[in-house]
């Protein structure tokens, strides 16, 4: 979907990485674009359920959903 078309939709309330946000995206792929996240290595959970990369285009986001987007980091 084109960026403009996404922006014309009604916004929904999402919690993204713990932060309440008003977003236009309806799929995870659209959400990554809307958040301008450009990296390649993410894992995403919606309402604590992991959504595999293959399903980022189809998985739909709904008002009130909680999304965690994580990347690899240093750890002990």
């Amino acid at each position: 979907m084109q960026k403009a078309a996404v922006q014309n939709r009604t916004a929904i309330a999402l919690t993204v990485n713990g932060e309440r946000r008003s977003m236009h995206a309806r799929s995870l792929r659209e959400l990554l674009a809307e958040l301008e996240l450009e990296g390649d290595f993410f894992a995403i959970a919606v309402n604590r359920h992991v959504v595999t990369r293959a399903r980022w285009n189809e998985a739909s986001l709904n008002d009130g959903d909680s999304v965690e987007i994580v990347t690899p980091r240093q750890g002990g």
Binding site: N17, E38, F42, T71, R73, G76
Partner: peptide, 22 residues
């Protein structure tokens, strides 16, 4: 090596940089 998973908040590149080194 041990690694962690953390929320991405900085444009999405930090994780890539680290992961490429690993």
């Amino acid at each position: 090596v041990t690694v962690s998973v953390r929320r991405e908040n900085a444009g999405g590149k930090d994780g890539d940089t680290f992961w490429n080194i690993i």
